[in-house]
Design a protein around this nucleic acid. Structure first.
Lengths: 150, 150
DNA sequence: CGACTTGACCGTACCAGATTCGGAAGGCAG
DNA sequence: CTGCCTTCCGAATCTGGTACGGTCAAGTCG
């Protein structure tokens, strides 16, 4: 489905998606045209979803990072819950989880006061009965999905 | 530091970093040249860290997503801990956290068996005395940092 | 065995679009 | 008022994306 050359191409693009196809091709001993064709197919197949930019959260006023576990008294796996969460821009990820809590959300706010206000909003969502907040003191790293074969 | 035009430009680039500067400029009523100049400065200032591609984790054999809380009997905020974690490709994020646990890591593996093997490796890291694993059943969404002003 | 199909590759040529540049128009301090 | 700084535009240049035609190797079927 995905050979070694594809993996190298994807990995290089993760590091820098602005490099010319000629450089990309040189890294895998292919011509620019062939490298281009492979990348085109990777996009077509959905392996590469999109090309985007990586933004420094601190530079856009998002200094506080926290994970919040939401407890509930009802099933929260429906679209209404997703939409309610998606409507809050501070929420970066939302997942349904196994275990005592129901949902895990990753949030970024400007200040801890904003985090408090956000928790209030989370409580207001239908079904939410409790929150447990894990505040990040320092991030070791955040990086793209590894494409290494294991 | 970052005006409304910059925010729109960054937001557009997050959605699609391949669009021509002319289109980018049209979105904010600027010429292609001016849009280009603003984006160049955003990169220079580090607001935009890099241009990258968004890869479908399932397409590269990373179907299982989990968060693992690491407990410890020693301070884990040093470089040795970071390096030990960074050496494991399945780990996508690692943060030092406040609360009962010490470190939170986000991991992606191919199977739950691989997740189990990964937990074994985490236990082997100096200082780690316990792990608590939160397995994701379904992801509502994962999206880039919002650049909205609040 | 030989004709046909398929898929991946290469090299070339064209042209869209990135990048650079000079100059104009505002804003502001002295 | 004058000089300085920032931001913008439009034009010119040139890099690099994209399309195309042709070669080669591997597989398929009569």
């Amino acid at each position: 489905m995905l050979d070694d050359i594809d993996r190298v191409l994807v990995s290089r693009l993760q590091q820098d998606a602005t490099q010319p196809y000629a450089a990309l091709g040189a890294a895998v001993d292919l011509s620019a045209g062939s490298a281009h064709e492979r990348v085109r197919k990777l996009r077509e197949r959905g392996v590469i979803r999109r090309t985007t930019v990586d933004v420094d959260p601190a530079a856009v006023g998002r200094d506080v990072l926290a994970y919040v576990l939401l407890g509930s008294d009802a099933w929260m796996g429906d679209a209404a819950t997703r939409d309610a969460l998606a409507a809050i821009p501070e929420i970066q990820e939302a997942h349904i989880i196994a275990g005592t809590a129901s949902v895990l959300v990753k949030v970024r706010t400007a200040t801890t006061e904003d985090l408090q206000a956000l928790l209030r909003r989370l409580f207001a969502i239908d079904g939410v009965t409790s929150t447990q907040t894990i505040v990040v003191l320092e991030s070791f790293f955040e990086r793209p999905v590894s494409v290494d074969p294991d």
